[in-house]
């Protein structure tokens, strides 16, 4: 089995995120890191590999991004990927979710994996949708919010986090699975893995290398356009329940939770 894991370089969690008013894109000038949600996807791939239910030949980390995104790939490799592919091309800058999904699918076509894993969301765009777009282009089944994966008879048996409880879904391979962050606790890369990351193979591909139609990517090729950017509305103040009579307070909290269907 060959597993491709889609990863992304995002602004570090400690950096306050800002929009650049001139480009209407995220200001990516500060410290960057591997999207923390992707570390769960890499860990899921590692657990499939180490689980022994299926032979995993290789785990390939794939990203699309500027030159600096190489660091995200090094981190992905230090967490266990065997090699990495970096799709980078000025023509790709400004791609929206659909264009990004198309471009990544082109890389994946060349890799022809049995399983594509990715994190549920990026820590910057937070679209939750790239997996579905990629799956559509590859004509593969797609699942989101997966929090358990078992390999059985060449198929995947997945638990998917639903609004109330879990769905258990069986999926034929190849498939694109977007994992929730509850699926596992990503390991700490060992020092040797960090130091060995640069020695693992890294292929750099241009848009042309993977047959990307230039009219379908970049700002021009994106079907969405950012018209304006505005700060989010201020949060409504929370409800404070004063504890005068504890029984009454508990009742109030329980009914508050019930109204929101948060109690099973």
């Amino acid at each position: 089995m060959k597993i491709c894991v889609l990863v992304k370089e995002v602004p570090d969690a400690a950096v306050e995120k800002r929009m650049d008013p001139s480009t209407k894109r995220l200001d990516r000038s500060g410290e960057k890191n591997l999207n923390p949600f992707d570390t769960h996807a890499i860990e899921a791939a590692m657990q499939i590999k180490e689980g022994g239910a299926v032979d995993v030949d290789e785990i390939v980390a794939v990203t699309m991004g500027p030159e600096s995104a190489v660091r995200a790939l090094h981190k992905a490799v230090s967490l266990g990927a065997d090699r990495s592919v970096h799709l980078t091309d000025p023509a790709l800058a400004g791609s929206d979710v659909c264009a990004t999904g198309y471009a990544l699918a082109q890389v994946l076509k060349a890799e022809s994996p049995d399983l594509v894993l990715l994190g549920q969301q990026s820590d910057d765009g937070e679209c939750y949708t790239v997996g579905a777009v990629v799956a559509d282009h590859l004509q593969m089944p797609s699942l989101t919010q997966v929090i358990k994966i078992d390999v059985q008879d060449g198929k995947l048996r997945c638990e998917r986090q639903a609004e109330y409880g879990y769905d258990t879904v069986e999926v034929e391979l190849p498939a694109v699975i977007s994992v929730g962050d509850a699926i596992n606790e990503p390991r700490y890369p060992s020092l040797k893995a960090i130091m060995g990351a640069k020695k693992k193979p890294l292929d750099t591909k241009s848009a042309a290398d993977v047959g990307i139609d230039p009219s379908r990517v970049g700002e021009q090729g994106s079907r969405t356009a950012v018209l304006a950017i505005n700060p989010p509305p201020a949060k409504e103040p929370g409800e404070i329940i004063e504890d005068e009579d504890t029984d009454e307070t508990v009742q109030k909290i329980v009914s508050w939770l019930e109204e929101r269907k948060l109690l099973a």
């Binding site: 090094h74 230090s78 020092l191 960090i194």
Partner: peptide, 19 residues
């Protein structure tokens, strides 16, 4: 001072810090 570190040194540092 982080700017004095190589990417690899920073990854090692971040990893130990998180651990």
């Amino acid at each position: 001072l982080d700017s004095l570190l190589t990417d690899e040194e920073r990854m090692i540092r971040d990893n130990v810090r998180r651990f």
